[in-house]
């Protein structure tokens, strides 16, 4: 598989507060992120709240202030540097990279019909020449997202959460993008509908050869749909691996703690709340050295002083931990 998006040493910083004299304070919410999303991949990104996973999704669309490093898109034949895109070039790029949000109740305009919601990207981006063509494209995509075509004239309030999320998916797909960024797209749904939407996303991915960047806090969801998974903590990536390898043989103590905290239906499972201690620190003052050292029971003097490098093996399993090889499994 060839690369669709290359992220190299990416940093994102927000400026906060304001001072009449002197510089404003800068908060670096993502630091030194490097990863590659391959064409046709279902790439998963997991992490706790405050880890910066949504910011990374936004940065892919140049919707977050990129302060260092680069994002290179290979969607078009000539590679594009996403951070420097402006004007028409940026608009063209965003046609090919679309987003699906978490809450289908607030992401759909209540005063627009379903037909108009799905047609809006076509009109804004000038992708249809006539009303007939727009209608035809809307009906085609609505059918693929298993929406009832007779419902296109209704308004969002008439639909349940799962149906609304299908509408949001149809809207994202109608401009025929190459990359879909799905930010917690099933988090607001009940389990029985969540399974339906996940199956829909998977079938769309395989039938259209799309690439998904799937952001979620839910490890079991990611385990079901993704091919490759990256784990984030406090603005950095601590582990990236193919799904099977990550869930069967996690290497980073943080990944292990996350997996051990997920309540399963196995009644003899013992939840282990103490593999990782306390809570995530503020991103405004991240710890020195390895950022997880304040919560990691295996932390040593080395972890407190020196940030670990990402170490990758031949199978593509990368981990950023000084001691992973010697930790108990």
């Amino acid at each position: 598989m060839s690369a669709l998006i290359d992220i190299d040493n990416l940093s994102v910083s927000y400026q906060i507060g304001s001072s009449l004299f002197g510089a404003r304070q800068k908060i670096e919410v993502l630091s030194d992120i490097s990863l590659q999303i391959k064409k046709g991949q279902f790439f998963g990104l997991v992490g706790e709240s405050g880890s910066g996973k949504s910011t990374l999704g936004k940065a892919l669309l140049q919707a977050a202030p990129i302060s260092g490093g680069r994002i290179t898109s290979h969607i078009t034949d000539t590679p594009l540097e996403v951070a420097s895109l402006k004007g028409q070039a940026l608009k063209d790029y965003r046609k090919s990279a679309q987003m699906i949000f978490q809450d289908p109740y607030s992401s759909l305009n209540p005063r627009m019909t379903i037909r108009d919601i799905i047609a809006e990207p076509l009109e804004v981006m000038g992708l249809a020449q006539s009303r007939e063509e727009t209608d035809q494209k809307v009906r085609e995509i609505a059918r693929q997202c298993r929406l009832n075509l007779e419902h296109l004239r209704r308004f969002p309030h008439a639909f349940s959460g799962g149906q609304r999320q299908r509408i949001a998916i149809a809207r994202a797909l109608v401009s025929e993008p190459e990359l879909i960024i799905a930010d917690e797209s099933v988090a607001a749904l009940d389990v029985s509908t969540q399974a339906d939407i996940l199956n829909l996303l998977k079938s769309i991915q395989s039938s259209k050869g799309l690439t998904f960047f799937f952001i979620s806090h839910d490890l079991s969801v990611v385990a079901h749909v993704c091919d490759v998974v990256a784990v984030m903590y406090l603005g950095q990536i601590v582990e990236i691996a193919p799904k099977k390898s990550l869930f069967a043989m996690p290497r980073h103590p943080y990944t292990k703690a996350l997996l051990a905290s997920v309540p399963s239906l196995d009644l003899d499972q013992k939840l282990e709340p103490n593999l990782i201690e306390g809570e995530i620190p503020s991103v405004a003052a991240p710890p020195e050295g390895c950022r997880i050292h304040t919560r990691c029971p295996h932390a040593t003097a080395l972890c407190i002083s020196t940030p670990p490098m990402m170490q990758q093996d031949e199978a593509g399993h990368s981990v950023a931990c000084h001691h992973w090889a010697t930790l108990p499994a």
Partner: peptide, 24 residues
């Protein structure tokens, strides 16, 4: 049974998810 079968789980992540049919 439907709730259990539609629930994603770390123990059986290779298995397909079976959603409940229809909407609430």
């Amino acid at each position: 049974q439907g709730l259990i079968n539609s629930r994603p789980s770390l123990d059986h992540f290779e298995d397909p998810l079976t959603p409940l049919s229809g909407d609430l």
